[in-house]
């Protein structure tokens, strides 16, 4: 059945075709690998060798919400979302009743599930312990928000990326304290370097009975609480 279809025989046979296709694919893939972006691991020179942590003394918190207000002002936090908040908890029944406050913020975990979950390395943990977000890289998938057991992450309705408390990295890098710490009227929030044995946080963490939120999850939070009631330890 030598047909007329043989008149214009294809020069390339199947093997050559596949070879050419294979080479093209290989070149494309290697090009992609070469163009892989390096991980951004910026660490400020001022904070080298430090490990930041915060201690919150519940018994000193008077519930004035000044920390929330200063955080909003310092970090331009949009309405409806919070980098820090203060919970009000009531306990007991009259006459044996009491009211206490529980400030919450990003725990800057040593083993952050958000960093583990981020598909594009947009969120990362610096050597000084700060868990930060690269807003240029965030694709807004929400994996970190879902992965955070403390619900401290949110979608920023203006930037359209995930966002959260950064311990005021812009202040910390200049040797200042986070805005919430400086503004706290009762001195309930203490910020400092755990690597420095003379710092206030080191002293409190080693001499007081402290607890962290959801320790069973193995996230190793770096926000320690003094006097937190079990009902608010969520």
């Amino acid at each position: 059945m030598k047909g007329k279809y043989e008149e214009k025989p294809f020069k390339r046979d199947r093997r050559q075709f596949l070879k050419a296709a294979g080479i093209t694919t290989a070149i494309t893939i290697s090009g992609l690998i070469v163009s892989l972006k390096p991980i951004r691991a910026e660490t400020s020179a001022n904070t080298a060798g430090k490990r930041f942590a915060m201690v919150i003394n519940i018994e000193k918190c008077i519930g004035c919400h000044a920390c929330v207000a200063s955080c909003k002002a310092e970090n331009n936090v949009p309405l409806g979302v919070f980098r820090t908040w203060v919970e009000e908890h009531e306990k007991g029944e009259y006459p044996n009743a009491s009211l206490f406050f529980a400030p919450k913020l990003c725990n800057q975990c040593d083993k952050p599930p958000c960093v583990q979950a981020c598909p594009v390395k947009a969120t990362y943990r610096r050597e000084d312990g700060l868990v930060l977000i690269n807003y240029e890289w965030c694709i807004g998938c929400g994996a970190c928000i879902q992965a955070c057991p403390y619900a401290v992450r949110y979608f920023d309705p203006v930037k359209h990326t995930a966002d959260k408390c950064t311990f005021c990295v812009q202040r910390v890098d200049q040797g200042l304290h986070p805005a919430c710490v400086d503004t706290c009227v009762g001195g309930a929030r203490v910020f400092g370097d755990l690597n420095d044995p003379n710092s206030e946080v080191s002293r409190l963490v080693s001499t007081k009975r402290v607890m962290v939120l959801k320790p069973q999850l193995g996230t190793e939070p770096q926000v320690y609480y003094i006097g937190l009631d079990v009902s608010a330890a969520k």
Partner: peptide
């Protein structure tokens, strides 16, 4: 549906460029 759900859909291709291998989503 995944790309439509991204808050930054134009950056969807980033999962090929900066994949975080500890994230199950990056493997996708």
């Amino acid at each position: 549906p995944l790309i439509a759900d991204l808050k930054q859909p134009s950056r969807a291709f980033e999962i090929y460029l900066t994949p975080n291998l500890s994230s199950p989503m990056a493997i996708f």
